[in-house]
Amino acid sequence: MQLSCPMPRLDFDVITLGHGSGGLLTHKLLQSGVFDLFKNDLLDQQHDGASFELPGKLAFSTDSYVITPAFFPGGNIGELAVNGTVNDLAMCGAIPRYLSLGFIIEEGLPMTEFWEILVSIKNAAERAGVKIVTGDTKVVEKGKGDKIFINTSGVGQVHPKAAIHHSRIEAGDRILISGPVATHGIAIMSVRKGLEFETTIQSDTINLNHTVMKLLDRFGEGIRFLRDPTRGGIASVLNEIAELTQLGYELEQKHIPFDEQVEGACEMLGLDPLYVANEGLFLAVVKADIADAFLTALREDENGKQAALIGEVKTEHPGKVLLQSRIGGRRVVNYLTGEQLPRIC
């Protein structure tokens, strides 16, 4: 456990219903550390909301985080909640500026765990260069939650060169992925109750805004579309845009990067990595003439070392995603239906 900020002295070892009451305990919890931890001029207003000015075109995004377990190999729900919303903004081509932070905590959460989550949030926010400017804490009775749920909403300024929208995708465009797929989903699966298996796979949750902004600086409108393929994996994102654009999306299986352990775990569990959730990863559709330069630039970035060109947009098979298998056969990649369930034998 990395506690770069020492936990303040608190009267309670665990979160109680009173900490969400809005009364004295809430006040004490906030005053005795939270405000200090996230300290910035807007939060210091200590108002019902933050007031600020932001010029230009804005992007606004929200997401709720209910991951179980809350602590997983490679991270915890706190940094996930920051990175997730930061990345959603980045995928809109926006520079993330301000986040809201809402907690729904199940009573009984150990104070040390809550503090560890807070510190992760602080560190992730610093890494991404965003400020947490408003927040809320609610506590629900034991059994009415799953340790802790977090909602974050974020506001960002759209990069002046960004023109990211699925409607700009054209036949001939290239499809790229910023790194190996399915890593996060398998890291979580490996610690799920009843499914535990030994592995060193770690979640790759990370903020992608700096990476994306650098690419936007250089390639601007050449970047047609960006998306972080979280739940449902890359198959779901591609099906979504295939349906919206009525173009065909052809992938080359042999070019899709995997971590070897992740691929092994998927084999063992009977999961198709194309449908497994990702964090710290993005899918890009770019103009054909910049594809190679884009790939080179992405590979020079810390978050894109294993980036790859995985496919092409075609006019054939409108609305469908196809995969050229490693052995040369071809198949459709459909939407995921329901939850991916582990297979039986």
Partner: peptide, 29 residues
């Protein structure tokens, strides 16, 4: 009959013939 509303088991299991056809071939490639 689709994986989300299966009428029979072959549409459910990842090893069922109907589910395999549904997921990977969709009739018209």
């Amino acid at each position: 009959c689709k994986p989300e509303h299966p009428l029979g088991a072959p549409m459910v299991s990842s090893e069922g013939a109907c589910a395999a056809y549904y997921h990977y071939s969709s009739g018209t490639v």
